[in-house]
């Protein structure tokens, strides 16, 4: 196991150490806003104690990253594979354009979480937000699943404004009693038995990381949001 103490270290030094390390297990201590941790890295098991900076696990290609703390912006940007578990909150654009792997956030996510998430063949991205999400959740979403659990929040919808703007694939699932205002191309429905089965799987996984009882979370109602077309702009143009 490799231990990295971030104190007085530049991000490039930490990045180089991780890239060149033969150790599978890495523990990063005293992390305080150090950016780009594990950018493009695969096959490692990384524990971060502290607060990693922006672009944690960008282009991640199959690592397990556990953050004992909160994360900042663009966690898992263009992530391809792996899992990121955050025992805190996460900043804006969490999971931007992620194509595969999973991100679990114990608390809240900022603006534009899951923006432009997409799935492809065996790649299926999963973003689970334990608390509430900011505005523009799942903007341009093209695939995968975003689950907002709204645990320990007093928000009615657990999301901000413009949820699913430009969405043209995938699913957003909200655990709440009422729906937020949605753009016209979004179809919403109460979760059916099949949906609940899928949801429960992720809720169990969530609880396995952060504690809590799955059945307590499953008690509340869930809404499933999908897009009405994979081709939202088909009618927009006329050829000259």
């Amino acid at each position: 196991m490799l231990k990295i103490d971030c104190k007085d270290k530049h991000f490039s030094e930490i990045g180089k150490t991780i890239r060149e390390s033969k150790d599978k297990e890495i523990v990063i201590d005293n992390c305080l806003g150090h950016r780009y941790i594990a950018s493009g890295v695969g096959g490692k098991d990384i524990v971060i104690n502290g607060t990693p900076g922006n672009a944690l696990g960008s282009y991640l290609d199959g690592c397990k990253i556990v953050v004992n703390g909160s994360a900042q912006d663009a966690v898992g940007d263009t992530m391809n594979d792996g899992i990121i578990i955050i025992h805190g909150n996460s900043g804006d654009a969490t999971g931007y354009a992620m194509r595969g792997g999973k991100i679990f956030i114990k608390g809240d996510a900022g603006y534009r979480a899951g923006i432009h998430m997409k799935a492809y063949k065996d790649k299926f991205p999963v973003l689970v937000i334990g608390g509430k999400a900011g505005s523009f959740l799942g903007e341009y979403q093209a695939g995968g699943i975003i689950l907002v659990l709204g645990v320990n929040t007093d928000s009615k919808t657990n999301v901000g404004y413009f949820t699913g703007n430009g969405m043209h694939g995938g699913k957003i699932i909200l655990r709440s009693d009422e729906l937020p205002d949605l753009p016209p191309q979004i179809i919403s429905r109460k979760a059916n038995a099949e949906d609940l089965q899928e949801i429960e799987k992720y809720v169990q996984e969530y609880c396995s990381y952060f504690g809590g009882e799955p059945k307590d979370i499953m008690e509340k109602s869930f809404y499933v949001l999908t897009a009405d077309s994979a081709n939202p702009y088909k009618q927009l143009y006329t050829s000259l």
Binding site: A55, Y96, R112, H116, E139, A142, A230, Y233
Partner: peptide
Amino acid sequence: IPVGSDAISPAPHHD
């Protein structure tokens, strides 16, 4: 991306 799905590039990079 899946066959038949629009490939939408947002106007800005949202990061």
